[in-house]
């Protein structure tokens, strides 16, 4: 008789129980570990693709320039050169996919959003006090948004 079987029966039962638990654990792990686990690290690799599957809402400046290169060239010359098209015009993927769907017209509040004077704003930014800067209604009467140095005809 092998010496292992000479162990008291209660010990043998314990050993068998331990082996059983390990087997159940290994089987459960085999079935429950996601197939792409460990592909890129200690996480489910497919999660990356699932997160990346979302559709962008903002199209990006490159997509705008494809058709509107004239506006982009004008913009690049003036002080608004750091702006992206969608900064002012808003998210444009629907327009890129279907050009018949126009982007909404911009209102005067948009200029003030950045250019209203505030002690918190950095000194390099052109700031105005809306209440005494101009009594008219529209900024574009005097300023060209794509070329702020220019005066409209």
């Amino acid at each position: 008789m092998p010496p292992l079987l000479k162990m008291p029966p209660q010990l043998i039962r314990l050993v068998l129980l331990a082996i059983g638990i390990v087997c159940v654990y290994l089987t459960a792990r085999y079935f429950l570990t996601p197939p792409s686990f460990g592909q890129y690290g200690h996480f489910r690799g497919n999660a990356l693709q699932e997160i990346a599957a979302r559709q962008p809402y903002y199209a990006g400046k490159a997509a705008c320039v494809e058709c509107h290169s004239d506006h982009a060239q004008k913009l690049a010359k003036g002080e608004h050169k750091t702006l992206s098209c969608e900064t002012c015009h808003g998210p444009g993927r629907t327009h890129v996919e279907n050009t018949a769907e126009k982007l909404p017209k911009l209102n005067v509040g948009l200029c003030v959003r950045c250019h209203q004077a505030s002690p918190s704003r950095p000194k390099w930014l052109h700031q105005i006090n809306v209440h005494n800067h101009y009594t008219g209604s529209v900024c574009t009467e005097c300023h060209v948004p794509h070329q702020p140095n220019e005066v409209p005809p």
């Binding site: 990356l48 997160i51 990346a52 599957a53 979302r54 559709q55 962008p56 809402y57 903002y58 990006g60 400046k61 608004h80 750091t82 702006l83 992206s84 969608e86 900064t87 002012c88 950045c114 930014l125």
Partner: peptide, 23 residues
């Protein structure tokens, strides 16, 4: 914040970077 993972994997900038007027 997912760093706009769906945008950067397509070669676009994150939405906040795209929208920022002052770099």
């Amino acid at each position: 914040c997912s760093l706009c993972y769906h945008r950067i994997t397509r070669g676009l900038k994150p939405a906040c970077v795209e929208a920022c007027p002052s770099e």
